[in-house]
């Protein structure tokens, strides 16, 4: 695969230098600590948001540092979790006295490294709330897996929780909003081809022309199954059905018995979700059953 690339070992460092050069008005890069920090941080009295993860998912997370979103980002090596030193340095750099929210995508390495960093931060007297993002419905959340992965909801969560922090909400409120967003967000990924990590230099998996992998993870983790690439309409139905079947009722034990058709499923579900029926109706109508959506899907 063709890439604009120098030594792969320098990729993360060089790309951070580029980010700083292009957006010095918004953020700064601490090359020593390998973190991206919002310009003017720490903002006194404001809850700070720190996220991070392996590199290779840009603009996650460094591209979302700035007013109204993240206060700091910790980029790890490509597809490898950052280390607690980075997270602790970021936490200390942005703590304005109101506490720090760690936004952690549900991957084993990210969870462990952020856990150690939160313990270190607590030792230094900084209040940290950790929020886990796990929206990928391709993985069943069970005792037999590492749980659903954190993917697309991360962007929405960082934007909305960032706005909450920017308007002056306190730590518990910002973290609470972030957790509500995660509880109500679901994603499903589809891959047309494998990525090629720079250090490996070859694709992670072989996906023949004419096939798609349904439920792929963002590091090339295998999905639920492969099948022939059908029409966009067919693909959209698979994805929306997968998301709608898991939306709203987070921990229902009855999900397996639900009908697969999204519209009947939504009807069943909105009755079951008595705690938040208004949201269920809104979300399911926009995601699956509104005339506008059907019109788009047909085209």
């Amino acid at each position: 695969m063709k890439k604009f690339l120098n030594d792969p070992a320098d990729l993360v460092r060089e790309s951070l230098a580029g980010l700083a050069a292009a957006h010095g008005d918004i953020l700064r890069v601490d090359a020593e600590a390998q973190i991206v920090v919002r310009a003017g941080a720490p903002v006194q009295g404001k809850v700070a948001l720190v996220s991070g993860g392996g590199s290779g998912h840009e603009p996650l997370h460094g591209g979302f540092v700035g007013l109204g979103m993240l206060d700091a980002a910790c980029p790890g090596e490509v597809f490898t979790s950052p280390v607690p030193d980075q997270m602790l340095a970021a936490t200390k750099a942005v703590d304005g006295g109101a506490g720090v929210v760690h936004i952690v995508k549900n991957y084993t390495g990210d969870v462990m490294n952020f856990k150690l960093a939160a313990e270190d931060a607590a030792d230094e007297g900084i209040g940290v709330e950790s929020v886990l993002v796990d929206d990928d419905v391709a993985v069943q959340d069970s005792l037999y897996t590492a749980g659903r992965r954190g993917v697309g909801a991360t962007v929405l969560l960082e934007k909305i929780a960032g706005a909450s922090a920017e308007r002056g909400d306190d730590l518990a409120t910002v973290a609470g909003i972030a957790r509500r967003i995660n509880e109500r967000a679901r994603s499903f990924g589809v891959a047309l081809s494998s990525c090629t990590p720079p250090a490996a230099g070859k694709p992670i998996f072989d996906l023949p022309d004419g096939e798609v992998e349904l439920g792929i993870g963002i590091h090339g983790e295998p999905g639920r199954r492969r099948e022939a690439l059908g029409s966009a309409h067919d693909l959209a139905k698979v994805m929306v059905d997968a998301v709608a079947a898991r939306a709203c009722c987070r921990s229902s034990t009855a999900w397996a018995a639900r009908p697969r058709s999204s519209s009947t499923c939504c009807t069943t579900r909105s009755r079951r979700c008595c705690a938040r029926p208004a949201w269920c109706r809104r979300a399911t109508s926009s995601a699956a059953t509104s005339p506008r959506w059907r019109w788009r899907a047909r085209r």
Binding site: P82, P84, T108, G109, M112, N113
Partner: peptide, 10 residues
């Protein structure tokens, strides 16, 4: 912990 990252480091 400071150099490995991923899950193996912690």
């Amino acid at each position: 912990v400071s150099t490995v990252g991923g899950a193996s480091g912690p």
